Amino acid sequence: MTVLVVGASGETGSKLVEQLLIKNHKVKVIVRSPEKLPVSWTTNADLQIITASILDLSDEEMRALVKDSGAVASCLGHNMTFKGLYGKPRRLVTDATQRLCNAIQSNNSNSKTKFVLMNTTWNRNRDLNEPISFGQKCVIGLLRLLLPPHVDNEKAADYLRTQIGQNNSAVDWVAVRPDGLINEDEVTEYEIHQSPTRSAIFNDGKVSRINVAHFMASLINDDNLWRKWKGQMPVIYSKSYQA
Rank of each mutant, 00 (worst) to 15 (best):
L160E: 00
M118I: 12
V116T: 01
D127Y: 02
L142N: 12
K155R: 11
Q136W: 01
L145I: 09
R126A: 11
W122T: 11
V139L: 07
N153E: 03
Y159T: 09
S109M: 13
S111G: 06
I164R: 01
P148D: 02
L117S: 01
S106I: 08
P149Q: 08
I140L: 15
C138A: 13
A156Q: 01
C138K: 12
Q136T: 09
R161H: 06
P131N: 09
Y159W: 12
N110A: 15
N119P: 04
H150D: 03
Q163P: 00
T162G: 09
D158E: 10
K155I: 07
C138G: 04
N108A: 15
L147W: 14
L128S: 06
L147P: 04
T113D: 08
K112C: 04
N108K: 14
I140W: 03
H150R: 03
S111C: 04
T121V: 15
L160Q: 00
E130H: 12
L143P: 00
R124V: 14
L146P: 01
K112T: 07
K114N: 11
R124D: 11
I132R: 04
K114G: 05
L160C: 05
Q105E: 15
I132Q: 08
Q136C: 02
K114L: 11
V116Q: 00
K137E: 08
N119Y: 05
L142R: 15
T120G: 08
S133W: 09
G135Q: 14
T120Q: 02
R124M: 14
L143S: 11
F134D: 08
L142F: 15
Q163A: 03
V116N: 00
D127P: 01
L160I: 04
A157P: 00
V139H: 05
N125C: 15
L128P: 00
N129W: 05
K155A: 08
I132H: 07
V139Y: 06
Y159Q: 10
Y159G: 06
N153D: 09
L160S: 02
P131M: 06
Q136D: 11
L128A: 06
M118F: 03
P148G: 05
R126D: 15
Q105C: 13
S109H: 15
H150L: 13
I132N: 04
D152E: 08
D158N: 03
N108I: 06
L117F: 02
S109E: 10
W122I: 08
R161S: 04
D127G: 06
F115C: 09
Y159A: 07
T121F: 03
Q136R: 02
K112V: 04
D158Y: 01
P149E: 07
N108M: 10
N107E: 09
S133P: 11
V116A: 01
W122S: 12
F134Y: 11
Q163T: 12
T121A: 07
W122M: 07
N129H: 13
N125S: 15
S111D: 12
L146S: 14
S106H: 13
D127K: 10
T162P: 00
V151K: 09
Q105S: 14
K114T: 10
T120P: 00
T162E: 13
D158P: 00
I164N: 01
D152T: 04
Q136I: 01
N119T: 10
Y159H: 10
